[in-house]
């Protein structure tokens, strides 16, 4: 039952900046048109967002700059108060929480990583990581002990006494990550954590992040404007435009069945082999018996096995999680995905 309950649940959340935002919203009756509000001097940050995130799931929020990603994240962490709508964290109504409850929630259940790292410049690596614990009232000794564990976890051993200004961007973000994890939160918010890093480091940090997530298995809300990053990490992706969530779905569905013109444009250039799994191109096992010796998993991304499949003249059997053969894949289909038109493909991923 608690597994069924979503960890984060948003119910028609609006965030509008401006003086008479609330009044205007009431008058608009839920139908918010960004241009109209703009004329009245308001900016629409989040427009009618409703979704749920399950335990252990990673939802990646995507969109162009100014589309309201950060604002959505800030509403869910209640760094700003939503103008309207309800947000539930593990079933509890966030919007009606008192300051004290909110602080308790942040001290025990939430962690956040920021784009510009947001480290405290006057504290060392160790002190920065220990900060949330000390704020909570833990003894210095315990907090420092725990902070040391975190330093080891993110691979900064030996740099405990450095100041943030003495670290590279990637190292600083490791500190940010360690700090957000120090209190062992259930929910992890990351707002463009890797955007300020150069591509090589970014890749490395993504791997690191996946490794951590493999160990920790948190519920994650991850903001990015990099589609590749989203594809690498996401269980589901939400695409935002002007505060509206245009589509919220699995990566494959977003690429293959864009819900709106905007999403289609957005995903146009995405190489589909990076999104599609073998499952989506396999065919039922026919009467042919001449299989290749190769076996591929139905959950493998096409990109990762394409070379092997193409190198094989025969059909390659596809296995499911129990190693049963559930279908075959022909190199012709893979070639089609790699080089052909995408409109004809149907997804069943």
């Amino acid at each position: 039952m608690s597994d069924q309950q979503p960890v984060i649940k948003c119910d028609s959340v609006y965030k509008i900046f401006g003086k008479d935002a609330e009044k205007m919203l009431q008058n608009a009756n839920g139908k918010v048109v960004a241009e109209e509000f703009q004329k009245a001097g308001c900016v629409v940050g989040v427009n009618n967002a409703s979704f749920e995130v399950k335990k252990g799931e990673m939802l990646v929020v995507m969109g162009l700059s100014g589309s309201g990603k950060s604002t959505l994240l800030r509403c869910i962490s209640r760094l700003t108060d939503a103008t309207a709508g309800n947000i539930y964290i593990e079933g509890e109504d966030l919007t009606s929480m008192s300051d004290k409850e909110l602080i308790g929630l942040r001290r025990n259940k939430m962690g956040m990583v920021f784009q510009s790292f947001a480290l405290l410049p006057h504290k060392t690596v160790l002190e920065n990581i220990a900060f949330p614990l000390q704020v909570k009232g833990n003894s210095t000794k315990d907090s420092i002990q725990r902070a040391k564990e975190m330093v080891d976890l993110v691979g900064l051993t030996g740099r405990e006494n450095y100041f943030p200004r003495e670290l590279s961007g990637g190292q600083q973000q490791r500190v940010g990550i360690a700090r957000s994890l120090a209190v062992e939160p259930d929910i992890w918010f990351l707002d463009e954590p890797f955007s300020a890093l150069d591509p090589l480091i970014r890749k490395e940090m993504q791997d690191e992040f996946l490794r951590l997530q493999g160990v920790l298995n948190k519920t994650i809300l991850f903001v990015t404007h990099d589609f590749d990053e989203a594809l690498r990490l996401a269980d589901r992706i939400a695409i935002m435009k002007d505060g509206i969530i245009e589509q919220l779905d699995t990566p494959a569905n977003i690429v293959l069945n864009p819900a709106t013109e905007y999403v289609r444009k957005f995903t146009e250039d995405v190489p589909r082999e990076k999104v599609l799994k073998i499952k989506s191109v396999m065919e039922p096992v026919g009467d042919e018996k001449d299989f290749s010796d190769l076996r591929v998993s139905e959950d493998a991304l096409i990109e990762t096995v394409a070379e092997a499949v193409l190198g094989d003249p025969k059909s390659v059997p596809v296995l499911n999680a129990n190693d049963d053969i559930v279908g075959v894949v022909h190199s012709s289909k893979v070639i089609h995905v790699l080089f052909g038109e995408n409109s004809t493909l149907e997804s069943n991923a």
């Binding site: 956040m112 510009s116 480290l119 405290l120 410049p121 704020v135």
Partner: peptide, 25 residues
Amino acid sequence: PEVLDAGRMSGCHNYQLMFKVLIPT
């Protein structure tokens, strides 16, 4: 503002925010 947010997300109350985050920063 991000440092401020970081302080708040670390669970600072107003006093801690002022004396442990804002003023030292």
